[in-house]
């Protein structure tokens, strides 16, 4: 089956610079990826198509140019290539969070004091939030995401067990 995509091609005034960052953030939330500078793409679900349309409207409102297209790849190979790009983006984001875990696990080690454990709990919670948000906008899930959630769950359970063993706390 041929997949349909929505492409947003845009040009934005270079000043103020925050406009560019704003658009980037909004595309990020939609789980869009860039094929080229200022050429972004999402799978053509109703919600994503609508969001690309709103982003285009806002780009025009601040004096930029924006075009929104619905498109299909002309070959199955190209289509797989785009899916791979989405997968790579999800993988990179999940990997970034995974990379923060070993240092955190060391800090939760046997010699960790109550202060360390509390800080570790906050950090696990923060990473978990980021992982949940990643799942919301990941259109082509990759195994790294599942691994990330599994490890965070294990860390949380470990912290809970340690908390139970600490008398006088919670």
């Amino acid at each position: 089956m041929k997949r349909e995509w929505v492409l947003l091609v845009y040009k934005i005034p270079s000043h103020p610079t925050r406009l560019r960052a704003q658009v980037w953030r909004r595309l990020q939330r939609c789980g869009a990826i860039y094929l080229q500078n200022s050429v972004s793409i999402v799978p053509a679900t109703n919600e994503l198509a609508e969001n690309m349309q709103w982003i285009a409207d806002e780009i025009r409102e601040v004096g930029g140019e924006a075009y929104v297209f619905r498109a299909t790849a002309t070959s199955p190979e190209q289509e797989r290539q785009i899916e791979r790009l989405f997968g790579a983006a999800s993988r990179a984001q999940a990997q970034k969070l995974l990379d923060a875990l070993p240092a955190l696990e060391r800090r939760m080690g046997r010699t960790a004091g109550p202060q360390d454990l509390e800080e570790a709990e906050d950090e696990v919670r923060r990473i978990r939030q980021a992982a949940l948000k990643l799942r919301l906008r990941s259109h082509f899930p990759v195994p790294e995401e599942e691994a990330l959630h599994k490890r965070l769950r294990a860390m949380r359970e470990r912290l809970d067990r340690r908390a139970l063993r600490r008398p006088g706390r919670r």
């Binding site: 909004r26 939330r29 939609c30 789980g31 109703n46 919600e47 969001n51 709103w54 949940l132 948000k133 919301l136 906008r137």
Partner: peptide
């Protein structure tokens, strides 16, 4: 706007209303 930083309730509402359709 799929903005999970704005409220905690938002992402759940997005899913629920997509389901209504």
């Amino acid at each position: 706007l799929l903005d999970a930083d704005e409220t905690l309730e938002g992402p759940g509402m997005d899913l629920l209303f997509r389901g209504l359709l």
